[in-house]
Structures are given as C-alpha cells and as structure tokens.
Design a protein around this nucleic acid. Structure first.
Lengths: 186, 186
DNA sequence: TGGGTCATGTAACCTGTTACATGATTAG
DNA sequence: CTAATCATGTAACAGGTTACATGACCCA
C-alpha cells in the first residue's frame, strides 16, 4: 500500500525521499503514516522492481540529494493497483479493541474514556484542516487541477468520520449515564 | 494490541489457541483479524512474560490440547492497558489511499469504484450481524452479563461506520455525476 | 552557540500475512 | 470416500516502528 502511495506521489512529479516524507506529513497523514526509515527502504525495493529511477543531484551548500522519478512500468503498476477490485474494509481498530474489553473497568472510568475520545476528535479535525490548507499549494502541481476533487473527497471522509465517532461516543456516554442513574435508584 | 485482545479473552475463561481463533472469527473479526500462526506465536510470548499459563490436556479421540489461562500478572497487564490514556485515532485506510490517487482514472471508472464500495457495505453489515448473534452465546460466560454492553457498543460503531461510508460514497458519486453532466453541456 | 531544516540512511525489533504440514475423528 | 472440524504448529516474508547516526547550512 505504501509502495503505491509513493508511486502515486512520484506520478505528480519527481521527488526526494525527504519530499515524500513531507508530503505524507502534510496531506496523507490523517489516513496513512510513514517514517523516513520506511520510505527510504521502500524506495529501494521500488527501484529494484524498476518502478522508479533515481538520479543524484549535487548541491552546493546542502547535502547531495537523490531525485526519484516514476518509470513507465511504475506508472503501469500504479494503474493496475487503481483498477484492482478490492474495496473491502478490513482494517484494525484499536479504539474498538479497547471498548470491547471495558467491562473490566468501572462505569465512571469508561465514561471518562469516551470523553477523552471526544476531546481527541477535535485534535483530529485540526489535523485535517492543516491538510486541507496544503491542498491549494499542491494543486498547482497538477496538469489538470480538477483532479484535486479526489483529494477533497478524502478530507470529506475524514470530517464525516470524526462526526460519526463523536456521536457514537456521545451515545455510549448517555447509555452509561443511564445505567449509573438506575443503580442509584435501587 | 493482539496480545491484549488475547489477554482480554482469556480473562473471560481459559481457552486453547484454537478457541481464541474461533472467538476472533465470531466476534472481533470486523475490527480485528488474527491468523492461527500469529495467535500461537503470541501465546508463546505471553507465556514467556508470565501473563498466561498453559496446561496440557490429554483427550481421547482428539489431539491433545493446551489450555491457556490468564495469570495474576496477566490480569494486571490487561488492566494497565485498559487504563492507558491513548485514545488517538491514527489507523491506516486503504480506501482513502485509493481514493486520493483516483485522478489517474476516468470519472466513469471512479463512479464504479464508489458503487462497488457501497455494495461491499452490505457484506460488512452481514458480517456484523453474524457477530451480534454470537453475543448471546458468549454472554453466558460472563459473571456479570451487564458487561456485554461494551460488546454491543462495538457493533453499534460498526453499524454507524457503514452507514457513514455508504453516505460518503453516495456524495462522491453525486459529485462525479455532476461533473460528467457539466462536461456534456459544453 | 543552539535549534531548525534539508538530506541521507542503518539496525533491531515487532507485527502481520501466506503458505505449508500433520493427524485423528465425525458427519454426510 | 470425502470434506469439515478440532488442534497443533513452522518458515519465510512483508510491512511498520523505534532508536540512532551524520553533517552542513541558516537564522536568531
């Protein structure tokens, strides 16, 4: 998956490993993360498969850099991946793992758990708006700026997701409050 | 995370690796998956850390089995994990990765992509209802059956999530249809 | 002189996936 | 007789995380 993310970025234009890392941080970070160590490793395997090519650029005043470009066969692989029919939604959810076993803890503590989750929703939203801001910057790189709709769609998903989690957490809190009040009535 | 999932299950009662695999398939599958190979490996590391203990049980007519039980220190670790304050929502989304780069493909093909996603929403829902059914079965294992609310909360999340993705996909389709119609007007 | 940015990586480790292997019983 | 279920794993690989290392420039 990261391989194809890197191919997708290089398809917009040639970049160094460092540029790729920055782009991940600025734009894809809310649905995918990548450390430099992983990026440099993947770039090597991408190169070994002939999907990217690199060129050393000597700079004065700065360390040399390696500019990576997508090859024809890399572009073919990117398109193959995009056409693949595998839109399942497996994915692991640490939040649900921790929710599932909360029966071990007290109702009060679990209400706190969901409150904290709601608080973190806010931080997540700020993260996305950071990404939405960088969209205009990157949009210039596109030959056809209309293609940025797909970027916007991912942000829209992010916004809807946070709203959903927030509402879910609220329902959980309400349910737990009810149970707390019922037990007081006894 | 899987380590703690296993600890959580063993906390409900002693199980074999095979039982754990089945429970994952029946109940946690929609937010976490685990292969037997991984489960048996994790059980070994859990044992090495003293969080679980095993006991060999000779069976006639069936292969011997190893029954795993949680230890006191395992229970302490489970509780430590539950109390941890780390309710962030990182997580990687293959769906968004593929959406982000869809500018390479045609509008028609991308509409198809979102339609397929909507179709898969249905399959996901059936998967969850399978889990909701097994909830009553497992509920008997609990000393305090009220604790099953947390299980139900995870299913509720699943249901809300699918509804959200479905709505998002619909919005994406609508937007793409609009663009298609505009270009016909030219 | 100290921190930030640009720029490259290595090493060790942990987590997850795929494929394979074995062997007995039981139900159709 | 064959497939499913119960029950155990190993081996190899792929993907991801954490920690560390180096070095020069630029700005305050």
């Amino acid at each position: 998956m990261l391989k194809h993310g890197i191919l997708g970025l290089l398809n917009y234009g040639s970049m160094t490993g460092y540029d790729i890392m920055l782009t991940f941080k600025n734009s894809l970070n809310f649905f995918w993360t990548a450390q430099t160590s992983q990026i440099y490793r993947e770039l090597q395997t991408l190169k070994n498969r002939g999907w990217v090519a690199d060129e050393s650029i000597v700079q004065s005043g700065k360390p040399d850099k390696k500019l990576f470009s997508i090859t024809e066969s890399g572009r073919a692989e990117l398109n193959r991946w995009l056409m693949e029919d595998d839109t399942g939604f497996e994915s692991k959810s640490p939040i649900l793992m921790k929710t599932f076993f909360r029966g071990e803890r007290s109702i009060e503590e679990n209400i706190e758990f969901f409150r904290r989750l709601q608080k973190n929703c806010g931080d997540f939203v700020s993260g996305i708006s950071g990404s939405t801001n960088s969209i205009e910057m990157y949009q210039k790189l596109l030959k056809n700026p209309q293609k940025a709709i797909y970027w916007r769609m991912t942000f829209e998903y992010g916004a809807m997701y946070v709203r959903m989690v927030n509402e879910w957490a609220q329902r959980c809190i309400d349910e737990l409050e009810d149970i707390k009040n019922e037990s007081i009535d006894d």
